[in-house]
Design a protein around this nucleic acid. Structure first.
Lengths: 140, 140
DNA sequence: TATCTTTATGAAACAATGTTGCATAAAGTA
DNA sequence: TACTTTATGCAACATTGTTTCATAAAGATA
């Protein structure tokens, strides 16, 4: 695991510090679930608030994580799947916020369908934020 | 105008206070442009910050305005077109954030296309947040 | 390994944003 | 008008995010 973590860090030109290794590990373990600031703070245990803000920003800038826009009030972050780097993010999958358990999922397998934009508008970014009840909560 | 404003307020069971009349007027004048907290504060001139927070919440609860999820960091609000009320919001149009001028537009004329959700997920809400260059900024 | 340069960390102080409680004022109602 | 309900304005508080700066650690070089 530490090897995988270090691999990702160096691939994205990020120095391998203890904090970054730990944070990245948390993201990897969370899979397609996006993490809020609070989620991360709990997972980290004792840590420095400011360093977390800065590390999240670095991770985002370098293309390791993306902001999961889910329409909720907390900003959440999730691992990028692959080809994101410092130059561009390609995170065009929907995010689903479960109103029951509060978890946000990256729906990597779903493609956002095409649609027509009014004349003279140029599209660069796109977020589809869904909400409702997730599979686990539906079963109960 | 004041007549129209009062009409809307009473239709949504909101007392007609000077503050609400003024705020609603600002929203009506902004048309399909969504307003950030800052936009509103500037338009209002001298006012009470807390009352603004509370009035925005009332307007939202009663179905006068909706939050325009645009993927940006400032929350923005825009007038609901019609059939929203205290029971439900029906604001399923995309929002477009112009990266050049910072304005967010409600794209009421565009319908968010359908897509398939994984098994056992129930969809309740939906936001399509677009960004890029708006028509006015493209022309320059 | 020892040294140097660059970048990250941690702490304090600050700034911005949003919330709660409460007394007063105003709106709607009889 | 008197009465009831709701909104306003203020203070105090809580939360969230940012800036500055000295120190520590990482990566590079010899």
């Amino acid at each position: 695991m530490l090897h995988k973590v270090d691999d990702i860090l160096s691939k994205h030109a990020l120095r391998r510090t203890a904090f970054r290794q730990e944070l990245l590990k948390i993201f990897i373990e969370s899979g397609s679930r996006a993490l809020s600031h609070t989620d991360i703070e709990e997972a980290l245990g004792d840590h420095d608030r400011i360093t977390l803000y800065r590390t999240l920003k670095s991770f985002q800038d370098k293309g390791l994580i993306h902001e999961a826009v889910d329409g909720g009030k907390d900003t959440k972050y999730a691992l990028c799947q692959n080809q994101c780097d410092v130059h561009h993010h390609i995170d065009h999958h929907p995010h689903f916020l479960c109103e029951s358990c509060g978890v946000t999922y990256c729906m990597d397998e779903i493609k956002i369908p095409d649609f027509d934009l009014p004349r003279n508008y140029t599209l660069k970014g796109m977020h589809l934020a869904l909400s409702g009840t997730c599979a686990s909560c539906s079963k109960v």
